[in-house]
Design a protein around this nucleic acid. Structure first.
Lengths: 268, 268
DNA sequence: CAGTGGTCTAGACCACTGG
DNA sequence: CAGTGGTCTAGACCACTGC
């Protein structure tokens, strides 16, 4: 299945003389431009694993031929996908599937910067896995991960340090099924961002995330791992990360120490 | 001055047969597409006040004629400007200069949401001006606002409450010159976002901002205004807001109470 | 209905990458 | 050099708004 034809259902293409304008008369959906449909088709190929992270997708000309549209229409579809960081264009080389494994964009989702603002001034983070346990989802976790309460989940706890100073404590919940086989050892053995491991070992690509940020005091066990007192305020960063169809695949509660670092955000 | 010709210096247009390719041979700047130059021209018109916030700019066809380029080129320029939230397109109506005064997008830069996530569940914020004082910039403020230490600045302190609960305490530094004449009374009299007042009364349009977020404990005077203890952790949000050419026009230090609210951020 | 932004095409040419 | 993405044009037509 899902191999042969990438053709658009003819009744939807807004081109081809007049017959197609039957669409316009429809009820609510009120019109879907061709490039949006192309966008969906490309999305499907990404989701189905036809094109893997960091590999090139077919050229714009090829896609135009495959979908029977002009290059410009494919272009507009790719434009939006690359604005969403699902694809990355490289002039002269091609268009590539975005990844968390690039040397350059490591920690795509981590907005914590050292006080001097220069990420290069500190080496790579040291990752220490505290544990990785099987558990069942309570109501909260189930809701966040779109599971049923009682479903299997994995709980990971780890500490990130910069120049040997513990700075981030994270509790991570993952749905059990897609991540079956994940262990503390595999996590510890992998050298690179966790999301890169998810991509290569579990075919899970984190595409978007939403964070809720608060200021809190750490609990005793948390303060111990971060080597601070329970009176030291820390950032609580609760993240829900989703894969292609806004399907949640991770709930993460991070505590960030913000005396040597800050959380950076740009508004416009 | 700056009235007549919106023509592009001919030596830069990549069109017009071959003569123009003299550009290519240049040193570093390495090529600037036409639509980028159009973008700059539009930016200049915005900056110069030719087009005011919330008013319509000329139609794409008009701009194409004015700049002697095709509609598509103008379109691409406007595309980017509206992606940056400098312009807003409305199909069938026109393209408008973005504003902070819209009923809909009030608090464009405020990322604080009530715990239930629904902005409509709480009424509009109550704004209380504590004071508005003339002062001179110290080293830190001067650096943030691109002034010289000792230059005149205005210091505003205010509290925002939601359903009568003080939730945000803000200290705001403004450069003295552009905001000359701003008083506590005028601030208190204005009903709407502060940035809307800046637009209409001082011709200052905040276009972009960068925030550094930390968790801190309030000082005694801060805790009093927020009606909390000095042991209650709060979000410290330090914002630098800029106008059109990345010129900083405001330094703002906010303290956000995050028991009933959270700071929301989307990553992708 | 006229005017605006939005879509789509076809074709030409340019800039960048790598063999 | 061939192949890729990037720019630009000219023209047709569509969807939406408001008079």
């Amino acid at each position: 299945m899902a191999a042969e034809n990438p053709l658009l259902s003819e009744s939807l293409t807004p081109t081809d003389a007049d017959a197609s304008s039957a669409l316009t008369g429809h009820a609510t959906p009120s019109f879907s431009p061709l490039y949006q449909q192309i966008k969906l088709l490309i999305l499907q190929s990404l989701q189905s694993g036809e094109w893997k992270p960091s590999s090139a997708i077919p050229s714009e000309m090829e896609l135009a031929a495959r979908f029977k549209v002009s290059q410009g229409t494919v272009r507009k579809a790719i434009d939006e996908l690359s604005a969403d960081n699902l694809l990355v264009r490289r002039q002269g080389k091609g268009t590539f599937v975005a990844t968390h494994a690039e040397r350059n964009v490591q920690y795509r989702f981590l907005k914590l910067y050292p006080n001097n603002g220069d990420l290069n001034s500190e080496g790579p983070a040291q990752r220490r896995i505290i544990n990785c346990l099987s558990d069942t989802a309570d109501a909260t976790v189930a809701a966040a991960l779109a599971l049923e309460p009682g479903d299997a989940v994995l709980k990971v706890r780890r500490v990130l340090s910069f120049t040997d100073v513990p700075t981030i404590l994270e509790d991570i919940w993952l749905p059990g099924a897609p991540f079956e086989g994940l262990t503390a050892d595999r996590l510890a053995a992998f050298n690179g961002p966790m999301y890169a491991l998810f991509e290569t070992e579990f075919d899970v690509q984190m595409v978007r995330a939403e964070e809720k940020i608060r200021a809190v005091l750490p609990t005793p066990d948390q303060s111990e791992l971060l080597r601070i007192t329970t009176q030291t305020p820390v950032l609580s960063v609760e993240r829900i990360a989703t894969t292609y169809n806004d399907v949640p695949m991770e709930l993460r509660r991070g505590l960030y120490l913000t005396d040597t670092h800050y959380y950076r955000n740009v508004l416009n």
